[in-house]
Amino acid sequence: MGLFTVPEARAELARLLPILDEIVTVRADMVEVSAALVPGGTPTDLGGLPERKAAEARLNELMTEVQETGAELKGVAPLLVDFPAELDGVPVLLCWLEGDTELIWYHRADLGFAGRRRLP
């Protein structure tokens, strides 16, 4: 996949938001069911092992769908999605973190999340 422009990345993020929201829900369900399955775990009405396996499969499908766009899924808890781009000839990653309402951050590709800055 190629590089995204800022407008392209913002459009792709808008398209992905329902998928990202579902990832958050399925992730929470999977964690709750997993906790219920350990000895002494708190029971849940979400189900048992079959539901946990189904949630895991769905989570994998959703993550694959995100990555097929050319975006990079860097974290699942919290969700972190990077869109490869270039700003002023410098390789960067346009960076969306779970809870962000829009795509307004980037970091140089060689710096990682700690080098995050607001887009100019």
Score class of each variant (00 low, 15 high):
83 F>G: 04
22 E>D: 07
4 F>E: 04
120 P>S: 08
118 R>D: 04
39 P>Q: 02
3 L>G: 02
34 S>D: 05
64 T>Q: 15
53 K>V: 11
108 R>F: 11
74 K>Q: 15
62 L>I: 01
68 E>S: 14
107 H>A: 08
118 R>M: 10
54 A>R: 06
104 I>K: 15
65 E>L: 14
56 E>S: 11
75 G>P: 04
49 L>V: 10
45 D>R: 09
59 L>D: 03
5 T>E: 02
33 V>K: 05
96 W>C: 11
55 A>V: 01
59 L>P: 02
64 T>P: 03
112 G>T: 10
87 L>W: 07
94 L>C: 09
81 V>R: 04
26 V>H: 05
30 M>H: 13
15 R>S: 13
7 P>L: 12
71 A>I: 03
89 G>F: 12
41 G>T: 00
79 L>Q: 09
25 T>R: 13
84 P>S: 03
120 P>A: 06
65 E>C: 09
69 T>L: 06
77 A>T: 14
84 P>N: 05
84 P>D: 09
115 G>I: 01
25 T>C: 02
32 E>G: 00
20 L>S: 06
77 A>I: 10
95 C>M: 14
8 E>R: 13
72 E>V: 15
100 D>Q: 11
89 G>D: 09
111 L>C: 10
47 G>P: 06
47 G>Q: 07
2 G>H: 10
64 T>R: 15
41 G>D: 00
106 Y>S: 03
94 L>I: 10
11 A>Q: 14
33 V>T: 03
30 M>F: 10
25 T>M: 05
59 L>M: 05
45 D>C: 01
18 P>C: 05
109 A>I: 06
24 V>L: 09
102 E>F: 10
74 K>S: 13
91 P>V: 08
42 T>G: 00
116 R>K: 12
33 V>C: 03
111 L>I: 09
43 P>W: 00
30 M>L: 13
96 W>D: 08
35 A>H: 05
85 A>Q: 04
48 G>P: 00
53 K>P: 04
58 R>W: 02
14 A>Y: 09
80 L>C: 13
21 D>L: 11
93 L>W: 14
41 G>P: 01
87 L>C: 05
57 A>I: 02
